[in-house]
Design a protein around this nucleic acid. Structure first.
Length: 346
DNA sequence: GATGCGTGGTG
DNA sequence: TCACCAAGCAT
């Protein structure tokens, strides 16, 4: 196994030396230039970031020049690239390195990680490329390529999964060429093992888990982003002789806590009433109360939400989370609550 | 740990 | 058309 992995690493680095794109930050080991390129390339394609890199180097060839600039000018140079906090952090870090560190860059992963705008990926990239530290980078390309090649099914949207990949790669990253290995992994993911992979031009199909299992489209595992669609929270507030009808949640989050009756639905309130008319369910019994028992004071409060927001967070935001029974008895009158809810929606 | 942050490309 | 994605980070 170890022998096979050595073979994989060697083939990958050989491929990289032949196929790598000729990019300006690959012509230098100046940590300032490596750093600048990595910040620009965060969530940004090479073609989009390249002209910005050139412009920054023209205006600010070293960290002192950038530090002596002002934030407004830096933002002007950044204009159109997006994620503008990157520019503010870039400038702040340039000032820190220039003034506090006398222009000397931190030269290892842990110290780089302390700098503003530098997270796990960027710290590993700079440490390996500028300082030859054997620390693996894990970015979107690496997740894709490594999960397919090695057959890793961990959900990459879970932050704990980063450790799985770091550990796997730490075992195979060659200590003499961590820079080439890291860049080769990313370059391969960016040009061959793309989301819709180019397996016909891949060197590694013989030993690729996904290719052999025809699982390219199953990897990497990424839990689906929740589709954004409307949903209604229908709160039923019953009042009779100054008393309010509540119930205790029987399951899920907030089990045992009290709340007003709630019917979650995709439908508008009117369709909801039609849907439950005549059906024998707990909820329909409540609907019947609404329709027939006029002496009950009943108010429907319907709130439109998007599924993209978790129910838990939205409820908290709107102040709809259930209360203990004791708290519930001390609530203001329902009408006040209704007004509050409607305001919260606006 | 979930969420917001931006612009541009892709199938 | 549009969901998804691209060398992530801060909060």
């Amino acid at each position: 196994m170890q022998r096979n992995q050595n073979y994989f690493v060697q083939e990958l680095i050989d491929w990289f030396s032949k196929a790598k794109r000729d990019l300006p930050w690959r012509q230098t080991r100046d940590p300032y230039k490596i750093w600048l390129s990595e910040i620009i390339l965060q969530q940004t394609r090479v073609e989009q970031g390249l002209p910005y890199y050139e412009r920054f180097i023209d205006h600010h060839p070293d960290v002192h020049s950038l530090a002596d600039s002002n934030e407004k000018d830096v933002l002007k140079l950044w204009e159109g690239l997006g994620y503008y906090s990157r520019a503010r952090n870039l400038h702040a870090t340039a000032k820190f390195i220039s003034k506090e560190l006398n222009g000397t860059f931190p030269n290892n992963y842990q110290n780089l990680l302390q700098l503003k705008g530098i997270g796990p990926y960027t710290a590993a990239a700079i440490a390996s490329i500028a300082f030859k530290e054997s620390t693996p980078v894990v970015d979107g390309n690496v997740y894709r390529f490594a999960s397919r090649y090695f057959g890793v099914f961990d959900d990459i949207t879970q932050s704990a999964t980063r450790k799985t990949f770091e550990s796997l790669l730490r075992d195979i990253i060659p200590s003499d060429r961590p820079d080439d290995f890291n860049q080769a992994m990313m370059e391969f993911g960016a040009t061959v093992c793309t989301p819709s992979p180019n397996c016909d031009q891949c060197h590694f199909t013989q030993s690729c888990f996904a290719y052999q299992q025809k699982a390219q489209n199953q990897l990497p595992v990424k839990t689906k982003k929740v589709k954004v669609s409307e949903e209604h929270l229908n709160y039923l507030i019953f009042e009779h002789s100054g008393k309010y009808l509540l119930h205790s949640r029987t399951e899920g989050i907030w089990k045992g806590l009290y709340q007003f009756y709630l019917i979650r639905s995709k439908e508008e309130q009117k369709e909801l009433l039609n849907k439950y008319d005549g059906k024998v369910t707990m909820e329909s019994e409540i609907i019947k109360h609404i329709l027939t028992h006029r002496r009950l004071w009943v108010k429907f409060v319907t709130i439109e939400i998007h599924e993209a927001k978790s129910f838990k967070n939205l409820s908290k935001e709107l102040g709809l989370h259930p209360f203990s029974l004791e708290e519930m008895l001390n609530l203001p009158r329902p009408k006040v609550i209704v007004n509050y809810l409607q305001q919260a929606v606006n």
